[in-house]
Design a protein around this nucleic acid. Structure first.
Lengths: 229, 229
DNA sequence: TCAAAAGTGTTAACCATACACCCATGC
DNA sequence: GCATGGGTGTATGGTTAACACTTTTGA
């Protein structure tokens, strides 16, 4: 079933940079390719966009098929279309980045059973295509965005301690933060809600659990409130 | 000369949101379409990407062909690919936004003599395709970016007065700024260079002209300096 | 001499930073 | 009882915001 056009057209793909936390480490989810080109090589999850399908929808579909992830934070990163980026020919990829809390959203290989694993963003394995460039762009975006928009919460479980939140910021920003100042700041923003619960089974005083109040943030944001850590 | 593929592919276009200043007003450059669809309608300059051509390069080429503009600040904005955005069928557009100082870079219609004009960004005429959506996204991006990256200078002539710079920020941010505080702040950043010249032929005290020192900014930026107005 | 915008400093309020000790819990 | 991280307040220095008048120039 051939498709014929008057002018040449590119193939359109999506690629997803999925970030997750593992302890102190920021990790990225990769799958191992089982077809040429780059068979056996690690790559970002993604694939071809179908006709009549919005790119973001394609990204979510491919993520679901390849990693089982759904209903996660996902945002467009950049469109990559340099000639030569795909040895199969003219291919444009719209890249997305996603944030996922691994406790509530475990990733698992799709039906085609390709291998799937998490890798530290700072030392990933060799990647297929220009995926190293895409990963780097995603890291830059995440670092830039995390301090002025409250997207970091997407990496944590729904309920989390302030220390977990602080570790997250330290991980993403790559610097240590002062505990008391950090707590004061995030609580002042008013977007955190104290819960009645505390940690369980920890070998030290159990920390209080908090929850991010998204609708409150959105109300504040609409009035020009500017989140900043 | 038909082009045939095993799977359907989208047409790939680029669209450019070109911002320029006119007095106090922020304006956008539009061209009038002379073919269907949307013949006679105003639209963003842009067109089809050629095979083997990087999208940004295509954006610059189309801008040159349609408006005569070259060597201007241009950055990718977003890829638009919603089904139905182009009545001709599946078309994905990579949108760019550009900043231009109209004194040094006059825009003029291309050889095919399509009409071309500047319109206030806040009340543009009805636009072809989803160009109203693209324009709105570009305005949001500009507003967000102008206060933490020194891209505003691209809208001004090479030499400008501090009042012109202030008016620019007031226009883009949509709020009044304090003159003394504004001057102190921009001069403190150290990226402005005083010239020996002053304004000419003004019916009031002539203001000193300044120049943006790009290389100095880049040196500062590399050391983690953070521009902020 | 009038109109119009250029240019200039100080004070007060606020905010960010630095910093150290006691508390609760599990082993 | 000890090791581990949880939780808390203050003082200081720096930054930002508010504010009004004199100067220069052309008409």
């Amino acid at each position: 079933m051939p498709y014929t056009y008057h002018y040449p057209r590119p193939a359109l793909t999506v690629d997803c940079v999925v970030f997750g936390l593992e302890g102190e480490d920021l990790k990225v989810l990769l799958i191992q390719r089982d077809h040429e080109p780059f068979a056996g090589c690690w790559a970002l999850p993604g694939g071809f966009v179908d006709e009549g399908e919005a790119p973001e929808r394609a990204a979510r579909r491919e993520l679901g098929e390849e990693t089982g992830l759904s209903d996660i934070f996902l945002e467009q990163l950049y469109a990559f279309g340099e000639p030569g980026r795909d040895p199969r020919g003219w291919t444009v990829s719209v890249a997305y980045y996603a944030l996922v809390n691994r406790a509530d959203h475990p990733a698992q290989a799709g039906d085609d059973a390709r291998k799937l694993d998490w890798f530290p963003v700072r030392k990933p394995p060799p990647l297929a295509f220009d995926h190293d460039k895409i990963l780097e762009a995603a890291c830059r975006r995440l670092r830039g965005k995390v301090s002025y928009q409250p997207i970091g919460f997407e990496l944590l479980p729904r309920k989390f301690t302030l220390s977990e939140l602080q570790r997250l910021y330290e991980t993403v920003l790559g610097k240590r933060l002062d505990k008391r100042n950090f707590r004061r700041r995030v609580l002042q923003t008013g977007v955190l809600e104290e819960t009645a619960q505390t940690e369980r089974d920890v070998a030290h005083r159990a920390a209080r659990l908090y929850r991010f109040n998204k609708s409150k943030y959105q109300r504040l944001a609409r009035r020009g409130f500017h989140f900043e850590i």
